[in-house]
Nucleic acid binder design. Sequence first.
DNA 1: GTGGTCTAGACCACG
DNA 2: GTGGTCTAGACCACC
Lengths: 117, 117, 117, 117
Amino acid sequence: MIISIDTASDTPIYQQVRDEIIKLIGTKELKSGDELPTVRGLAEDLGINPMTIQKTYNILKNEGFVEIDRRIGVKVAGLKNLKDDNFEENLKKILLEGKARGYSQEELISEVKNLDI
Amino acid sequence: MIISIDTASDTPIYQQVRDEIIKLIGTKELKSGDELPTVRGLAEDLGINPMTIQKTYNILKNEGFVEIDRRIGVKVAGLKNLKDDNFEENLKKILLEGKARGYSQEELISEVKNLDI
Amino acid sequence: MIISIDTASDTPIYQQVRDEIIKLIGTKELKSGDELPTVRGLAEDLGINPMTIQKTYNILKNEGFVEIDRRIGVKVAGLKNLKDDNFEENLKKILLEGKARGYSQEELISEVKNLDI
Amino acid sequence: MIISIDTASDTPIYQQVRDEIIKLIGTKELKSGDELPTVRGLAEDLGINPMTIQKTYNILKNEGFVEIDRRIGVKVAGLKNLKDDNFEENLKKILLEGKARGYSQEELISEVKNLDI
DNA sequence: GTGGTCTAGACCACG
DNA sequence: GTGGTCTAGACCACC
């Protein structure tokens, strides 16, 4: 599982790791039922504090993306619709920023279509 | 100009104000050349410190969304293409989060189309 | 005389006008004895307050670049060496910034040579 | 790290500190990876408010000269070419001012060469 | 009038 | 420990 973080970024590391894992789910590189690395293992790989990964996994659980089983570990949750007002708000916000930056409707749509290539 | 902020949120106020203003530019409620409220005026309206707005305006200037004219105040910059790698990265990230949440390509595209209504 | 200013810039207008005039002297587009526009005329051309140009001319006089004769107006001063510690300090500062930005000695020297083309 | 500021100057303190740090990078007294003093530490040393240094570091980050790692603090960024139109503009402006002041091409070139001594 | 800078001191998030 | 945010109130430069 390829996750890259940037310790010099101003987004918190736990957040970056969350985003990266969600991206992997979005691209289907991680599918329902797939197991995620252990907290300790991933922390070592990334050279960061295990507590940071712990926090990431808790967030992902609360958001419904993963399930945590003390015996098995962490695995990607079954597909349900995780539609969320807050998410739609954020999506709209960034799409409007795109408009403000001068992107046309067509350009934004092609960004969406490019995801499935 | 209607801007709403949430002082209890964990996203910084200056950031929220930035996002709100960019949304207004995105929806064309603010057009090139329109004047923004004065630093002090907006700060008073929102019940926050002028320096916070000062920071917001400075960021918007650096991002190219507004121009600051000592004589007049702050106004929305002329339309140029403010395409930015970082922005595209963020857009892609949130679109993939949409996929991970179970949104279909069509649903995401209709979000884009809804912007122009 | 072609002078362009940017009212949205954060360098004061009087400063911009000063810099532009000095650039014209540096490129020999303005030579010793040449007359500068009147305060009022230049202010009108640029669409700014005459006091601003007045300030510019005073600065240029104090720096030794121009002479002001109440009867004739403002003209470029005779060539003398206006070497100045402060200037050398500034030059060194910006050259070092060039090094910090990764410019090589050769690149900086070619910038100097390009002035005479 | 020796940084001197002049609180009576009309160039902002945060700007002076920025310039001083860039000079240190330019002279290689600060190299890639070197850690800068903490915000509070440097502020105390200089007898100024921490927010002023905060602003300096933020500017340096945006300009690409430093990286801010939450875990460590602020360090000099890896060498990349930070070439910038605005910088070249400024360089040209001051070089032309040199010509206007009567410096010959050779004198200006020797200023560049002196940097490497 | 406008934006820009600075202070002193507080509180928070991150790791 | 680090940097980041915010306040309340002051003073300054520019036009």
